[in-house]
């Protein structure tokens, strides 16, 4: 197992380098530069490009960047936070975004699982239909609309919790964003759990379990849920990363200084270094999630572990 993990880890690192390479190429092909401002003269632009080493050929920049990344240096911001070290600039926002993302994911998964199971157990009844409608509304309404509605009704009209993020009171001020962001995972996971659960409940071994007279609760937890989990774990990883990228507008609504804000600003201001750094962080998170998912597969489903061992 550890050999397998090690191998996967190595491959992940290569994937990450490949992603940086792709990003570099894409930004290279992009029209304009961070410095295409109306007010800069040609001479100044040349000085700026030279100052940040952007006049060097592609492979030199790429090589240098890789070396720096290994040292933990992601470069400096060109425009949105002039000359600030990016590693320093994104550390706090990233922590904040991950915190909100994980909160939303945990709440979303738990509620989603519960909803899904209830719906599956009541397959083809009104309860099932009700949950279906709720979850479909959940995916059809964008999270930022939820966010604004929550701000309007719970934050403003009822005045229960603060609307805007407040660094001195993160617990309370992150409640609304967490709820807003958890809507999509709830809807997605509950739909998915429901259909997986129905499949599992129809399988022969559940029939056997039932025939053995095992209690329903124990049957669901010990027999059905475990097999339902495999595909669910698959969607959970990417969902979490999506929450981080997708939180952009929700962050905007609640004025959360998270990574989504930095990324959207960097993109609109052509701040290449920050775009690459943010994308790099996302990619790294994503690949780590995929790694965890792969390992979880093995834990949840022994058959996969055996199959992997064979090949």
């Amino acid at each position: 197992m550890s050999k397998y993990v090690l191998k996967r880890l190595l491959i992940s690192i290569i994937t990450l380098i490949a992603i940086i390479f792709v990003l570099f190429i894409m930004l290279d092909l992009m029209p304009g530069s961070p410095f295409n401002d109306e007010k800069l003269s040609e001479a100044q632009k040349a000085i700026l490009l030279a100052k940040y080493g952007l006049d060097k050929p592609f492979y030199v920049r790429f090589g240098k960047y890789l070396v720096n990344v290994l040292k933990g240096d992601l470069g400096v911001s060109y425009t949105i936070n002039k000359n600030k070290a990016i590693a320093e600039m994104i550390a706090q926002p990233l922590k904040l975004s991950i915190k909100v993302g994980i909160q939303a994911m945990v709440i979303g998964s738990i509620i989603g699982l519960i909803f899904g199971i209830i719906a599956a157990l009541n397959h083809n009844t009104w309860i099932d239909s009700l949950f279906s409608v709720v979850s479909i509304v959940g995916v059809s309404v964008p999270s930022y609309v939820f966010a604004l509605l929550l701000a309007l009704f719970i934050g403003y009209k009822l005045n229960l919790v603060p609307i805007l993020y407040n660094a001195s009171d993160p617990g309370r001020s992150l409640i609304l964003p967490t709820i807003a962001l958890s809507m999509f995972p709830i809807a997605n996971i509950s739909r998915f759990t429901r259909s997986e659960m129905i499949d599992v409940l129809n399988s022969e071994y559940i029939l056997l379990v039932q025939a053995k007279g095992i209690k329903e609760k124990s049957m669901i937890i010990h027999h059905a849920l475990r097999n339902t989990m495999i595909p669910i774990v698959t969607v959970m990883g990417p969902l979490l990363v999506n929450l981080l990228t997708g939180s952009m507008v929700v962050e905007k609504v609640f004025a959360i200084p998270g990574i989504g804000q930095i990324m959207s600003q960097a993109i609109t201001n052509n701040d290449y270094n920050v775009v690459i750094a943010c994308a790099f962080v996302y990619s790294a998170l994503y690949i780590i999630m995929m790694l965890i998912v792969d390992i979880l597969y093995g834990i949840i489903d022994p058959r996969i572990r055996v199959a992997k061992g064979d090949s």
């Binding site: 738990i110 519960i114 409640i175």
Partner: peptide, 22 residues
Amino acid sequence: RLKKAICLLLALFLLVGCGGQP
């Protein structure tokens, strides 16, 4: 089960929400 789920949910929010007062 639904009741339990709601209780659990509320508990979670309380946990999340137990920061300092403004």
